[in-house]
Write a protein that binds this DNA or RNA. Structure first.
Lengths: 210, 210
DNA sequence: CCTACCGATCGGTAGG
DNA sequence: CCTACCGATCGGTAGG
């Protein structure tokens, strides 16, 4: 008789802001922001649409939180990756590895950021694009620095940084946790790809390797 | 007095199926398929929404035409690019150059294919994904062949082909016709990036270059 | 090419 | 957490 959640999609009714965000994350990643109805988010949580508003401010706000938080983390990842590392080659390698790793570990967020950032209303859109631009310029700066030092060889550091970053983004499109390669291994190889694109050539063999 | 088009968005009322597709192309590329209303397409053409149906079968069909036609052209481009070319390095370079070139010259189509292919209903979706998979496997095959011949050096041809192709796709995100680099120049450099990712090492210098 | 109109669904609010 | 309900808008059709 009691109107309990019965046999809902999530079974237990411990709906929280985090649970709403997680359900939205999955649906936005698959169908896109405009392709997802809040009624679908509610259904996945086993509640009615209006009840969502106890846990969020609105659909747009949900997107904003996902995209802004992810973008902040990308910048934090970068800072942590290059901190205390002097060599420009290693700085680039680590920066790319951490970026690649994030796209394997947080696929849904990555897909949403790249697909739906344009659906954010101002000023949120501009804020996020600024963070992304800051990150791209950091990578580009590493490449430029390496070129000046004679460690890298590219005609256009901008072209190389665009290419490297988008290569990493694509990981979110195909990576599977149960696939043949784990996230760390993928990240390592993409770090290597980045050095190749940057035209890294190992130092001439002054001391033979064996 | 006559109810002529007046001062509509396109001025002249020569609306045709191609004009509708072109207007949709622009809007889908900017706002996404689900983010675009047919009323916006009509407005850009200076007509009312129902009049669109004289030139198209429906919104979904519009997306299908755009995505399927583009995917067919990608395969045709590839075939033409490698035809008659024997050397595997040159085959990869040309295949990537033509793919990159398409993403600079047909930015709207590329953005829509990559963002909205998931919004196609079956069986259209599967057909398009099959074409894309065929293309990816062709690129992967070139890399594998080069590895066998000792011309390329990668741990995973699949990882390399994913990275190379997505790098090219990203061109559609930033390329501008009035930018500092023209499409051919961008394509040439991405062709070079592809060889680098594939671990291409030029033949040892048997005949010195000068 | 239009006006008039359809049922469906959208995000969101009122008020418990 | 719910039911009841809102105005707006969606893609699409009827019938000129």
């Amino acid at each position: 008789m009691a109107a309990q959640p019965a046999d809902s999609a999530v079974s237990r009714s411990a709906v929280s802001p985090a649970a709403v965000r997680d359900a939205a994350l999955t649906l936005f990643a698959v169908r896109g922001y405009h392709g997802t109805a809040l009624s679908e988010v509610a259904q996945d949580l086993g509640i009615r649409t209006p009840s969502l508003y106890n846990h969020m401010r609105g659909k747009q706000d949900l997107l904003h939180e996902i995209v802004a938080e992810t973008s902040r983390q990308v910048l934090a990842d970068y800072a942590a990756a290059v901190e205390g590392v002097e060599d420009v080659t290693e700085r680039l390698r680590r920066a790319v590895e951490t970026y690649a790793l994030r796209h394997a570990r947080h696929r849904r967020e990555a897909l949403i950021v790249n697909r739906d950032v344009g659906s954010l209303v101002e000023p949120a859109r501009k804020e996020v694009l600024d963070m992304r631009r800051t990150h791209e310029r950091a990578i580009r700066g590493l490449i430029s620095e390496g070129v000046k030092l004679g460690r890298f060889h590219v005609e256009s550091p901008a072209l190389a940084s665009f290419g490297i970053l988008e290569m990493c983004v694509s990981i979110a499109r195909w990576f599977r946790d149960d696939g043949p390669m784990n996230a760390e291994e993928v990240a390592r190889q993409y770090g290597e790809f980045a050095l190749r694109v940057a035209g890294y050539t190992p130092e001439p063999n002054v001391h033979s390797t064996h």
